[in-house]
Simulated assay, not measured.
Amino acid sequence: MSSLASVHARSLAYPFIGLGLGLLLWWLLVHGVGGQSLMAARFSPENTWSAAVQLWQGGEVWDHAWASLRRVALGLACALLFGVPLGLLVGSWRDFNQSTSTLFQFLRMISPLSWMPVAVMALGVGEAPVVFLLAFAAVWPIVLNVSAGIAAIDPQWLTLADSLGANRREKLWRVTVPAIAAHLLTGIRLAIGLIWVVLVPAEMLGVNAGLGYFILDTRDRMAYGELMATILFIGLLGFVLDWLAREAHRRWAGQ
C-alpha cells in the first residue's frame, strides 16, 4: 500500500514540478535576460498575476470565454453533423472512398485560417465565418477516425448480425455505432485541439466578444498584464477541454 501511495503521490507531484519549472524559467527570462526592460516588466509573472486577479473578480473575461465556448460548441456540432456521415461513407463504401480520398486529403492540408478572406466575403462579418472556420478545422479528424473505426470492425460481427436477422438500422445502432465510438471520441479530441488553435485568430474577424477579440482589446489598451493573463487563461481552458475529451475516451475504453 505504501509503495502504491508513493507512486500515486509522485504522479501527482510531477505536473506541479513541471509547472513550477516553467514559472521559474518565465521569471528568469523577465528579470534576468530582460533585465530592467520596461516591456519585460509588463509581462512579468507578478504583473500577470495581479491582472489575472482583477480579471477574475471583474468577470469580464468570463463573458468572453462563454462567447468563445459557444462558438466551439457550434463549430464542433457542425463538424459532427457533416463529419460522421462522411466518415461512415468513406469507411463502408469503397468506390466513394477511392473517388474522394484525394480530394479530402487535399482539402485537409489547407490551413483553415487561409480561408478567412473567403469566409468573410461569402458569409459577412460576425459569427458565421468564425463557426465555418472552426467546423472546417474540426471535420477532418472526425472523418478520418470514423472511417478508421469502420475499417476496424470485425466482419464476423456483421455476419453474426445478419444471421440473427438484423436489418440495416439495427446493424448500424447495435454493431457499427458501438464499434466506432472510441474512434469517434479520439476524433473529437483531435478536433477540439484544432478548434482551440484556430479560435483565437478566427475571433479577430470583426466579432465584439470572445477571447480572440479580448486579446486584441488588451493589446489596443496596452494592458499587457491582462494580455498575458488572457493568454494563460486560454491555455487553461484548452487544457480543461482536452482533459474532458480524454476522460470521456478513457471511460468508454474502460467499459
Rank of each mutant, 00 (worst) to 15 (best):
residue 205 L to R: 00
residue 68 S to G: 08
residue 105 Q to D: 15
residue 216 L to H: 09
residue 69 L to T: 01
residue 29 L to T: 13
residue 11 S to D: 14
residue 156 Q to D: 14
residue 173 W to D: 08
residue 124 G to V: 00
residue 234 I to M: 08
residue 192 I to N: 01
residue 135 A to K: 01
residue 217 D to F: 15
residue 96 F to N: 00
residue 2 S to K: 11
residue 60 E to G: 12
residue 140 W to C: 00
residue 85 P to Y: 04
residue 135 A to N: 04
residue 42 R to E: 13
residue 170 E to A: 14
residue 209 A to P: 03
residue 150 I to V: 15
residue 39 M to S: 15
residue 67 A to F: 04
residue 168 R to S: 15
residue 115 W to E: 04
residue 145 N to D: 10
residue 219 R to C: 09
residue 11 S to W: 13
residue 237 L to Q: 07
residue 78 C to F: 15
residue 165 G to I: 02
residue 90 V to I: 14
residue 216 L to N: 15
residue 133 L to D: 09
residue 51 A to Y: 02
residue 149 G to H: 05
residue 110 I to N: 11
residue 43 F to I: 15
residue 229 A to K: 01
residue 126 G to A: 06
residue 97 N to R: 13
residue 61 V to T: 08
residue 190 L to H: 02
residue 224 Y to K: 06
residue 213 Y to M: 09
residue 77 A to W: 07
residue 43 F to W: 02
residue 181 A to N: 12
residue 209 A to W: 05
residue 104 F to S: 05
residue 157 W to A: 07
residue 249 H to S: 11
residue 128 A to D: 07
residue 112 P to E: 06
residue 27 W to M: 12
residue 234 I to G: 01
residue 236 L to I: 12
residue 17 I to D: 01
residue 37 S to N: 14
residue 54 Q to F: 10
residue 74 L to I: 08
residue 134 L to I: 06
residue 120 V to E: 03
residue 142 I to R: 01
residue 26 W to V: 02
residue 219 R to A: 15
residue 198 V to H: 00
residue 201 P to Q: 04
residue 173 W to Q: 10
residue 24 L to K: 01
residue 214 F to E: 12
residue 247 E to W: 13
residue 231 I to Q: 08
residue 62 W to Q: 10
residue 242 D to V: 12
residue 150 I to C: 12
residue 54 Q to D: 13
residue 94 R to K: 14
residue 217 D to C: 02
residue 142 I to E: 04
residue 71 R to M: 06
residue 10 R to W: 14
residue 139 V to A: 09
residue 175 V to D: 01
residue 37 S to C: 05
residue 6 S to F: 11
residue 162 D to M: 07
residue 87 G to Q: 01
residue 145 N to L: 11
residue 168 R to V: 11
residue 214 F to G: 06
residue 42 R to S: 12
residue 249 H to D: 10
residue 120 V to N: 03
